[in-house]
Design a protein around this nucleic acid. Structure first.
Length: 767
DNA sequence: GATAGGCTGCTTTTT
DNA sequence: GCAGCCTATC
C-alpha cells in the first residue's frame, strides 16, 4: 500500500503486516524474534504506522512500551518522521513512565497523594537507612543494601510483605522491615521504582472500571526488548492486554533471547516462552543482519551456538566476509592498552572517525588503564557510565528543596537538606526530630512544631524557609522557581565558598536550563486518561510535579564532552543497542569475561556468553579481541587464562596478531573450571610473598615468583622491561639467585638501578 | 561540624 | 586502585 512498507525486506514486511485480528475475528498477538542488527526498531515503528494508516488502530488506541527513555524517544522521532501525527497524546514510553502516568491520573484509587514523589535507587537506600535507624535495627545484621535488594526483588515478583514466606527469624525480620518500609513510604507519599509498577498493577487489578477502560482503549500493545521483562512487568502486560477476557487486545512483542543480559536485575527470558504459551502468537524471525560483515557474524553465531537454552536463530548477511576478527594477546593490561592505542592511531590515520571506534569491557574498573593510555597518547575519548546529571549531589540537593515545596512530608528530602548548607542542625537535633515524628506518627515536617529547645528553634526556622520559598514562588514559572530555590536555599552561596564548588555552581545553573528545556519540550504535558466516570478527561500535572518526576525517571546523560569526536569507552552492557564501525573487546580472560562471580550462578555462564554475543554484534566492519597474561585488579596482579569464549569462535574467522602460545594455556581447554592445576594444593613451592593483602587473593592470584611461566622459576629475564608500582618503568640488568630467593637489579628510568627481591617486589613484565 | 586518615569491599544497571 | 564509609581529632 503506502511507501512506509517499501524498504522492508520480506521477513520485516511479514512482521509489520501480520493481521492483528484472525479469521475468527479475535485479536491475534505476535512475537518477533529479532536478531541483533536486524531492524527491530524499524519493524516496531513501522508496525504502529501501518496499523494507524490502514485504519486498524487510532493513535490513542496504541500503547508502546520500552525499557529506556532513549528507546521511547527514538520510537516517537521515527514515528513522526513516518507520518504526520501528533505523538504527544500517544502512550509511548518506558514501563516506569507509563505507570507514573497511570498513577498520577488515578492517584486516589491507587492510594497515593497527588503530589507523590519518586525515589530513585539512592533515595531508596537512604530511606531504608533512616528506617533502620528509627527502628534501632543493627545494620550490620541487616545491611541496608541487602534489604533494598530484598524489597526490590519481592516487588518485582509482585509480592507484598503479607504474601511472603516468613521462614527463619532472619527472613521474618526482613519481611517485617519490608512492611515497615512500605508504611514509611506511604506516610511520606513516596514510591520507589518497583513500586510504580506494582502499584499500577494493583490499581488495574483491583479497580474493574479503570481496568476495563484501558483494556478497551488500548487495542494494540507493542513491547520492545521483551526478553528483558520481569515477572511483574509480564503480569502488568497480561492484565492490561485483557488476556483471558472475552476481548483481549493484540500484543506485538519484539525480543531477542540471545541478547538477554539483565537476568541479574530480575529480567526473565522465560517470559518469551510464557508468552508463546499464553498468547499463541504468530512467530516471525528476523535473521537478516544489516550491520556486520560475515566473519563478525560467523563469530557471533558460532559462539552463541554453545548456549543450550535458546529459541534458535542464526544471523546472516549479504555483506561478504569482510576482515577477519583480530585477536591479540598482551603481557599486561598496560601493554594491552598500548596496543589498542596503536591500532586506534592507524584506524584514525586511515580515515575512521573516533566516534566510530568503541572500546568495550566487562567491568568499569578496566577503563582506568585504557583511559590512561589514550590520555597519554592525546586521543580524545569519552567514557560512558558513572554519575549522571540528576544523580549529582548538588542537583539532588536542589531537587530535595523543590520536592519539599511540592510535598513537605517527603522525609528523605527533608533529611537530605535540613542541614545542608549547615544550619547548626546536627545528629542530636535530627534524632530528637525523628523520635518526635515517630511518636506523633507524622512526617519530620509536621513534627517540627512539637520540638522544644535548640532543636525546635533551628528546625522550625528550616520549616519556615521551605514555607517561605513555596509562597514566594507560587506564581513563578518553573525555571524561575528553580532559580529562586537554588539561590534562597543557600546552595549557590555554599558552593561559591567551597574550594571545588565552581563546577557544582555551574551544574545548579544548568538545572535552571534543564527546567526551561523541560517546559519547552513537554509543552506542558496534557494527558487524556480515564475520568471518574471512566470517560476520557484531560489531566494536567503542575510543571514542578512533572519536572520532578522527569528528574527521577530520566536521570539524564552521563556524558562529559558530548558532541566531540572521541573514542567511545563503555561496558558491554552499556553498548547494547549501539553499533560502531570498529569495536575492541578487551580483557577476554577467565574470571573477568566470563566474570568469576557468574560461574557459580544459575545460568550465569550462558548469560556471560550472551553478553559476549552482544559485544561481538556491535561491530560493523572491524572487530578486535584482546586478553592479557597479567593484569592489575583490585590492587593485585592477577594471572588469568584466556577466556573460554575465544575457543568458541570459528578459527577460520580469526587472525591471531600474536602467536597463539599453546604452552601458555596451562589449563585444559573446554572444561567448565579452568583453574590452573598449580593454583590449588601446595606443590608449587608456596608463596614467599603475595603481591598484597594475601587473605583476599583468589585462586588465580599468585606471587609473581611462583609462576611456572618461564623456566627459571620467577618469570623474568635479563633485558626485560618491567613496571614497578612505586618506581615506574625500568629494565632488568641482572638476576641473581633461584626461585623465590631471586633478586633482580632493575635500572629504573626515573629512579636509577635498584636490587629487588623478585618474590616481594611488585614487578610486572611490560614487553 | 569539618576534615583527615584508616579500613573495606569490589560485575553488569535502567527506571 | 579507588571510592565510600566510619572514626578520631581539632
Amino acid at each position: 500500500m503506502t511507501n512506509i512498507l517499501n524498504n522492508l525486506n520480506p521477513e520485516q514486511l511479514e512482521a509489520v503486516t501480520l493481521p492483528p485480528v484472525n479469521e475468527a475475528g479475535n485479536s491475534q498477538s505476535a512475537m518477533i524474534l529479532a536478531g541483533a542488527g536486524s531492524g527491530k526498531t524499524k519493524v516496531l515503528t513501522t508496525r504502529i504506522a501501518w496499523l494507524i494508516q490502514t485504519g486498524q488502530a487510532s493513535p490513542v488506541g496504541v500503547l508502546a512500551v520500552t525499557f529506556t527513555n532513549k528507546a521511547a524517544k527514538e520510537m516517537l522521532t521515527r514515528l513522526s518522521a513516518m507520518m504526520p501525527i501528533n505523538t504527544r497524546g500517544m502512550w509511548v514510553g518506558t514501563f516506569h513512565g507509563l505507570c507514573n502516568r497511570l498513577l498520577r491520573a488515578h492517584h486516589k484509587d491507587a492510594g497515593l497523594p497527588s503530589t507523590f514523589q519518586i525515589l530513585d535507587t539512592q533515595d531508596q537506600l537512604s530511606a531504608i537507612k533512616r528506617l533502620l535507624k528509627s527502628l534501632k535495627i543493627d545494620d550490620e545484621k541487616y545491611p541496608p543494601k541487602q534489604l533494598q535488594y530484598f524489597i526490590a526483588h519481592a516487588k518485582e515478583k509482585g509480592m507484598r510483605a503479607k504474601d511472603m514466606d516468613r521462614g527463619d527469624s532472619f527472613q521474618n525480620t526482613m519481611v517485617e522491615l519490608y512492611q515497615a518500609y512500605e508504611e514509611q513510604c506511604q506516610r511520606e507519599g513516596v514510591v520507589d521504582f518497583a513500586e510504580l509498577l506494582l502499584r499500577s498493577y494493583e490499581l488495574l487489578k483491583h479497580h474493574q472500571p479503570i481496568r476495563e477502560h484501558y483494556q478497551e482503549r488500548f487495542r494494540h500493545i507493542l513491547v520492545d526488548e521483551f526478553q528483558d521483562t520481569n515477572a511483574l512487568q509480564y503480569a502488568w502486560l497480561k492484565l492490561l492486554s485483557g488476556h483471558g477476557t472475552s476481548s483481549p487486545c493484540s500484543v506485538f512483542a519484539v525480543g531477542d533471547d540471545d541478547q538477554s543480559i539483565y537476568a541479574f536485575r530480575g529480567a526473565d527470558v522465560e517470559n518469551m516462552k510464557l508468552f508463546e504459551r499464553h498468547y499463541k502468537p504468530y512467530l516471525v524471525k528476523l535473521e537478516q543482519n544489516y550491520r556486520s560483515y560475515g566473519h563478525i557474524l560467523d563469530a557471533a553465531n558460532h559462539l552463541i551456538a554453545n548456549n543450550t537454552e535458546r529459541l534458535g536463530k542464526n544471523l546472516r548477511t549479504d555483506a561478504g566476509h569482510g576482515e577477519p576478527v583480530r585477536v591479540y594477546e598482551a603481557a599486561t593490561d598496560g601493554t594491552e592498552a598500548a596496543w589498542m592505542v596503536d591500532e586506534i592511531k592507524s584506524l584514525i590515520n586511515t580515515g575512521s572517525m573516533r566516534t566510530e571506534i568503541a572500546i568495550l569491557y566487562r567491568s568499569n574498573a578496566q577503563s582506568r588503564i585504557i583511559e590512561h593510555g589514550l590520555f597519554s597518547a592525546g586521543i580524545p575519548y569519552r567514557v560512558y557510565g558513572g554519575l549522571r546529571f540528576f544523580e549529582r549531589a548538588e542537583i539532588k540537593h536542589a531537587l530535595a528543596y523543590l520536592r519539599l515545596l511540592e510535598n513537605p512530608n517527603d522525609d528523605t528530602s527533608f533529611a537530605r537538606v535540613v542541614n545542608f548548607p549547615t544550619r547548626g542542625i546536627g545528629a542530636k537535633s535530627i534524632e530528637t526530630l525523628q523520635d518526635s515524628a515517630k511518636l506523633n506518627n507524622c512526617s519530620f515536617y509536621a513534627a517540627a512544631p512539637y520540638l522544644e529547645g535548640k532543636a525546635g528553634t533551628s528546625i522550625s526556622a528550616f520549616v519556615r524557609l521551605i514555607d517561605h520559598m513555596r509562597d514566594a514562588t507560587r506564581h513563578n514559572t518553573l525555571p524561575e522557581t528553580v532559580d529562586y530555590v537554588i539561590q534562597n536555599s543557600g546552595l549557590i552561596q555554599h558552593y561559591l565558598t567551597e574550594r571545588e564548588g565552581q563546577d557544582r555552581v555551574e551544574n545548579l545553573q544548568e538545572l535552571v536550563n534543564a527546567a526551561t528545556a523541560f517546559i519547552a519540550e513537554e509543552g506542558f504535558a496534557q494527558d487524556t486518561v480515564a475520568g471518574t466516570d471512566q470517560t476520557e478527561v484531560i489531566t494536567e500535572m503542575s510543571p514542578l510535579a512533572g519536572f520532578l518526576a522527569h528528574a527521577s525517571l530520566e536521570a539524564g546523560d552521563n556524558q562529559a564532552q558530548a558532541g566531540q569526536d572521541a573514542v567511545q569507552l563503555m561496558t558491554v552492557h552499556a553498548a547494547k543497542g549501539l553499533e560502531f564501525t570498529n569495536v575492541f573487546i578487551t580483557g577476554l580472560e577467565e574470571g573477568l569475561f566470563p566474570h568469576e562471580n557468574s560461574i557459580n550462578e544459575d545460568d550465569g555462564l550462558e548469560e556471560e556468553r550472551r553478553l559476549m554475543y552482544v559485544a561481538i554484534t556491535r561491530a560493523k566492519e572491524r572487530l578486535f579481541l584482546s586478553h592479557t597474561q597479567s593484569r592489575l585488579l583490585h590492587g593485585q596482579v592477577r594471572y588469568n587464562l584466556p577466556s573460554r569464549f575465544l575457543d568458541e569462535l570459528p578459527a577460520e574467522s580469526l587472525k591471531h596478531l600474536t602467536p597463539k602460545n599453546k604452552d601458555a594455556r596451562w589449563g585444559s581447554s573446554t572444561t567448565t573450571t579452568r583453574m590452573p592445576s598449580w593454583s590449588e594444593g601446595s606443590d608449587w613451592g608456596g608463596p614467599a610473598a603475595t603481591i598484597s593483602r594475601s587473605s583476599r587473593s583468589s585462586a588465580i592470584t599468585v606471587p609473581i615468583s611462583s609462576l611456572p611461566q618461564k623456566d627459571n622459576g620467577h618469570g623474568f629475564r635479563v633485558g626485560q622491561s618491567v613496571f614497578h608500582t612505586k618506581f615506574g618503568e625500568g629494565r632488568i640488568l641482572a638476576i641473581e639467585g633461584q626461585a623465590d630467593q631471586a633478586k633482580a637489579n632493575v635500572n629504573f628510568n626515573r629512579h636509577g638501578p635498584k636490587w629487588l627481591q623478585l618474590a616481594i617486589a611488585k614487578l610486572t613484565a611490560i614487553d
